[in-house]
């Protein structure tokens, strides 16, 4: 309210002042202001990340006995379709046969299922091109065909034709019992 210190000398270059020290306090204050803005920016950015309730739904359990041979069940997991596929011996054989074919994203069929469970193929049902959901039993390789831009996947979910760069992703999952898996 009342700043009582008053000097009548308006000379900015008054003697006895060290300009470096003056600059220093201003620089420190400015940096502190930037720091405050930066520090507060993080909470405002982080609030857009998945919230506690969203993260809580991140893992699901699934009973495989619901899927019969030759069939596929799609369940929603983290907002995306999860394909649970019970493959026939012929489909497994076709997938293994192509292990050493000219693949865009080379992977063996064995590395795409759990050991001893070749019949169960668990895939994230999202085309690696631009995120559409591929249709089951489509395309020339007995696997999936993406309706958006024609990417073709084989019976192991590997990309064989079309614009997609990668195989259909296999999520992290584990067998809890012989017929029960936990995804995520």
């Amino acid at each position: 309210m009342s700043d009582t210190v008053v000097r009548t000398n308006p000379d900015p270059q008054a003697p006895g002042e060290d300009p470096n020290r003056r600059d220093f306090i201003h620089i420190v204050a400015s940096v502190a202001a930037l720091g405050a803005v930066g520090g507060l920016a993080w909470p405002f950015i982080d609030q857009m990340n998945p919230a506690g309730d969203t993260l809580a739904l991140a893992s699901i359990e699934f009973d495989l006995s619901k899927v019969v041979e030759g069939q596929q069940v799609a369940v929603k997991w983290r907002g995306k379709p999860l394909f649970v596929r019970y493959r026939t011996p012929a489909e497994i054989a076709a997938a293994v046969k192509d292990d050493h074919a000219d693949l865009r994203d080379p992977q063996t069929d064995e590395s795409r299922h759990k050991p001893g469970k070749p019949q169960y193929l668990i895939l994230i049902g999202v085309c690696t091109h631009l995120g559409c959901v591929p249709n089951f039993k489509g395309g020339d390789y007995g696997g999936w065909l993406c309706p958006c831009h024609g990417s073709v996947y084989d019976t192991s979910g590997r990309i064989r034709k079309g614009p997609a760069p990668k195989n259909l992703a296999v999520p992290d999952y584990a067998f809890l019992s012989d017929t029960k898996i936990k995804v995520g």
Binding site: P43, D46, Q47, N49, A51, G52
Partner: peptide, 25 residues
């Protein structure tokens, strides 16, 4: 407004969700 739901059935709970689940909500 990114997290709030303007509906009589959800408004109260969506505010509480902001308080409890949204990061720094």
């Amino acid at each position: 407004a990114m997290h709030y739901v303007p509906h009589v059935d959800y408004a109260f709970n969506s505010v509480e969700r902001i308080m409890r689940d949204v990061n720094y909500g």
